[in-house]
Design a protein around this nucleic acid. Structure first.
Length: 577
RNA sequence: CGGGGAGUAGCGCAGUCUGGUAGCGCAUCUGAUUUGGGUUCAGAGGGUCGCAGGUUCGAAUCCUGUCUCCCCGACCA
């Protein structure tokens, strides 16, 4: 394809609203254009990458017996009311009314739609298993879209849903998709990790995330140095390194002391010359969403952590069996519950449930707020001075913690979540009455799993991982074009003739080729070629043609091969593998 | 929703404090020049300064209101 027909416009400067490198490069290369926050037009170049990625997905899924369909983007409210998610999903679901004042939403996901689709057809165990997928635009009304395609409101997703007769069969389907995803992301050539994760409000029990490693990633990961263990920090168990284990001391008597103006852990550490492990902080949350201090039905509770630890809201949520993580109380609400402002609060004398992080359990004679402004208590001990409602692992695991496998320690990474596999069980089939008759003629709920790949997000993750100072370096498998021909002397007939011959040759070989046929100086073309990032660049200019050699340049590492015109195709084929 | 920042030409920005005919770079168009890493020169076109009120002889600039965008947080299968 000729550049002049392709509607490609590059920018020297990145737009001011792009923050991370992949977003900047995509905008500079003209791959992406914003229409509204989180809503983008994908240019022809990006569309080519999208299609290639989609084809990789199709190949891997089709070969594993999955079936592609295409479901609606607009769903009636009644469908989502069946599972209760019309309300549960909150504002993330974009809702609107049609001309008859009937409510609809834009599909944020398709568990309901696909379950509705199959429940009318699947009647017998003989109809199972099934695995149905689609590649389609999703809409989620994200509170804050950011970083281009990393977190868009409108984006393309591959979502698959498995239907099986029982738990064992469903786990087999899960494992199969796990392997499929591994194959898909491996074919892209990306550095990724498969991590344990929280199931979130989609429900279900077993789940893994596929994370492309990148500093700009939104997720924090902990990966073992010496075992296969890898987890999203949201669910990683926190196990102290050996040297943190404090020796138990004899309990001594409780004592109140004055700490005027000392509110933060850091201030107390500095003023009292003690370590964070002598301090215990008390955080306050509400188990009710929309906590209102005037509402008598509120259920505030306290969480105790060592001074150096951070609370893990997902662990709290799971401990309490909540749908969403609990909300922190405001300062005013804390004052109302404890009688003191945050910074002077503690567990002694509180009449609300107290959840204790298991790190605190090891401590003796520690310091907490006295629930009286400007005072703290020292020599506080669990059991003697206050009772814990429950002891659990409620803190964030961190780098250096012991690996739960027992081997090695945890190292932290940032990741971009590009894929997610869930075992759902019968959560949706029960609510939507999706059943089949087993061999005994008895109705059973269908076991489900769901599996997503963020298609557009993956492309950006690839760029985030594959670029250099000059621009994008596309993995060969998803590059918009394999070859980028720079015609350096567009007015030289011999040069143009060779370029066109090569273009025809590549087209016959099914190698995608972009020909920069603009009347521009070589420097401009080189800069643009580096920016756009095709794996191979071919320079055809009068100088080379006269010398009987043409430059074939590998984008990655800028390796230059000088070859005779009739050897160019062969060389390219070799490089592409 | 809380905190911060910003709306001036397609893109990147200055001008606003201290009111006085709207500027620069890139891009675009014309003509020369140059021709293997974003040539150089000359010229041209393009903006109701986010929007609405107000103050003033006069507002991009001051006042009031409002909308939008970006960043951090909360949120997020």
């Amino acid at each position: 394809m000729k550049w002049s027909q392709c509607h490609i416009y590059t920018l020297k400067e990145a737009p001011a609203d792009a923050e991370i490198i992949s977003h900047k490069l995509m905008v500079r290369g003209g791959y992406l254009k914003k229409l509204a926050p989180g809503i983008y037009t994908y240019s022809h170049l990006l569309l080519r990458s999208l299609k290639k990625f989609e084809d990789i997905i199709r190949q891997e899924l089709d070969s594993r017996g999955c079936t592609e369909v295409l479901m609606p983007v607009v769903h009636p409210a009644s469908l989502w009311e069946e599972t209760g998610r019309w309300n549960e999903m909150g504002a993330g679901l974009l809702k609107f009314q049609n001309r008859n004042q009937h409510w609809f939403c834009l599909a944020a996901t398709h568990e309901e739609a696909v379950t509705d689709y199959i429940r009318h057809d699947i009647k017998s165990y003989r109809d199972l298993p099934r695995n149905i997928y689609q590649i389609q635009t999703k809409y989620r009304d994200e509170i804050r879209p950011r970083f281009g395609l990393m977190r868009g409101r409108e984006f393309i997703m591959k979502d698959a849903y498995s239907f099986d007769v029982d738990h064992a069969a469903a786990l087999k389907a899960y494992d199969q998709m796990y392997e499929a995803y591994k194959a898909i992301f491996s074919r892209l050539g990306l550095d990724f990790r498969i991590v344990q994760a929280d199931a979130g409000n989609i429900g279900g029990s077993q789940t893994h995330e596929f994370q492309v490693l990148a500093e700009a990633g939104e997720d924090a990961l902990l990966v073992s140095t010496d075992s296969d263990f890898a987890a999203n920090v949201e669910v990683a168990p926190a196990i102290d390194p050996d040297d943190v284990m404090a020796a138990k001391e004899e309990m001594v008597s409780l004592e109140k002391f004055s700490t005027p103006g000392l509110k933060t852990i850091q201030q107390l550490m500095d003023a009292l010359k003690i370590s964070s492990n002598s301090l215990v902080k008390t955080l306050f949350f509400s188990a009710n969403e929309g906590f209102d201090s005037k509402d008598k039905g509120l259920k505030p509770f306290a969480v105790l952590l060592r001074g150096g630890d951070e609370v893990n809201p997902v662990k709290l949520k799971n401990l309490l069996g909540m749908v969403n993580p609990p909300l922190m109380l405001t300062d005013d609400e804390v004052k109302e519950v404890t009688g003191a402002w945050p910074g002077s609060c503690g567990p002694v004398g509180l009449k609300i449930p107290i959840y204790l992080d298991n790190g605190v359990e090891k401590l003796t004679n520690f310091i907490v707020g006295a629930n009286e402004d400007g005072y703290h208590l020292k020599n506080v001990n669990v059991g003697r001075d206050f009772q814990a409602t429950k002891v659990a692992d409620l803190r964030m695991a961190k780098e250096g913690d012991k690996c739960p496998s027992g081997k090695g320690t945890l190292k932290s990474y940032r990741g971009i979540e590009v894929g997610h596999v869930f075992y759902l069980g019968t959560k949706y089939s029960q609510k939507m009455q999706a059943t089949y008759l087993d061999k005994n003629g008895k109705a059973q709920f269908i076991e489900m799993g769901c599996y997503g790949i963020g298609v557009t997000r993956t492309l950006q993750a690839a760029i985030e991982q594959c670029h250099d100072a000059d621009g994008i370096i596309w993995p060969k498998s998803i590059a918009p074009f394999h070859v980028h021909i720079c015609v350096l002397d567009i007015k030289n007939e011999k040069v143009v003739e060779i370029a066109e011959k090569l273009e025809r040759c590549f087209t016959e070989m099914r190698i995608d080729v972009l020909v920069d046929d603009r009347d521009e100086r070589p420097g401009v073309k080189f800069k643009d070629a580096d920016l756009l990032g095709m794996p191979i660049r071919i320079n055809i200019g009068a100088r080379g043609v006269d010398a009987g050699e043409i430059e074939v340049v590998e984008r990655s590492g800028k390796v230059v091969h000088k070859v005779a015109p009739d050897k160019v195709a062969e060389t390219v084929k070799k490089i592409l593998g």
